[in-house]
Design a binder for these strands. Sequence first.
DNA 1: GCTGCCGGGAA
DNA 2: TTCCCGGCAGC
Length: 415
Amino acid sequence: MEAQKGEANSLSPEALKGERGADGRRTVRPLEGPERDHTRSVSLLEQKRKVVSSSIDVPHVRKSEEEVDMEKVTAAMVLTSLSSSPLVRSPPAKVSECLNSSWKDSGGGFTPSSYSSSGYWSWSGPSDQSNPSTPSPPLSADSFKPFRMPSINGPPPDDAIDEQDGSSLLFDEPIPRKRKNSMKVMFKCLWKNCGKVLSSAAGIQRHIRTVHLGRNCDSDCSDGEEDFYFSEIKLNTDSVADGLSSLSPISPSVLSPVPPSNDRHRRPPENHSHAHSNTTPLSRSAPSALYLIHTDHAYQATSPVTIPSTGSGPGSAASTSFTPSSSSNFSISWQSPPVTFTGTAVSPTHSRTQSFGEQQPPTIAVLSSPPRATGSLSRKSRGEGKKCRKVYGMENRDMWCTACRWKKACQRFTD
DNA sequence: GCTGCCGGGAA
DNA sequence: TTCCCGGCAGC
């Protein structure tokens, strides 16, 4: 059987054409071996033949032994052509070619019009492909089904299995159907203090447009700006509850600390690298005020979290790094144009879709602004007045205040 | 280079 | 807690 298969598989269109007679009809190669056992196929063909006998020159009025044999041969002929033609017609490697050309190219040797419509299209049953003259691309996947050799000897292949295997085998691309049902895509508003999560992009866009951008018009008047204010979240619904609950405390203020209404060019995605989807136990439990992180600094945090808990000056920088929650397995895709980073990203933060389930917590670099002091988040500006050191000099160090002696901020001559 | 002082280690 | 110092950053 394998040999037969191989032979059938190895048939090239040219080879098949070569089998055709001068009248364009295929000549018959006598059946041998297992093909003769295709009783089911033969009976089907015999039924079919009554309908389409005009296309096959087989005398079957009288039922002499010779004619019965002839019928068998004829049936086998058709069967042979059936068995081989689709393999030639659509070897896996040529699927796209077939899709692009065969369906359209009715002049080819294997278009339904030039081929007996008896066997090929009815092989898998009347409900399968009944109209060969109007093939459609999706047909290709199904049309391959009848020609899978196991279906000849054995029972008809299970459709589900067949279709899945066949399509995935023949079309080397993901099949939407095969997507895990547990994956759910949500859309999360990144607007400050919002964090609304909607299940549809249109919904989140509308939400952003109306609530945050203050536009009441329809989506057709949108310039697409709202796209930058939400993120796509792929949730594993196995842990949706967990994922959402862990997401909700993540204030979007992290992502969009400044309402962008006055600055159309300021966009949350600018903060991708450090913000999206990276959470930390602290960030979950910390008050939302802590999320008001100024992003005009370039503090590359290497420790888990160093968010100052007390207010620092307006110009002070906050530093943070986030460790993602590992309890839920989800990924976030940013609806944003690429952002150029000017530093070293410690983690793969700019892939459009970042998923992290088991992976180690990445440390995130915030590098979207000119570098400033590291670790000087609350460092005082240098005192302008004279200090003990200046006043007393190094030789009178014992006269210094304790702080000065300890190289701390002078307590005697405070500014 | 000097100075202020933060962060952190040692006692 | 006290003391000390490395090291950073402003000047």
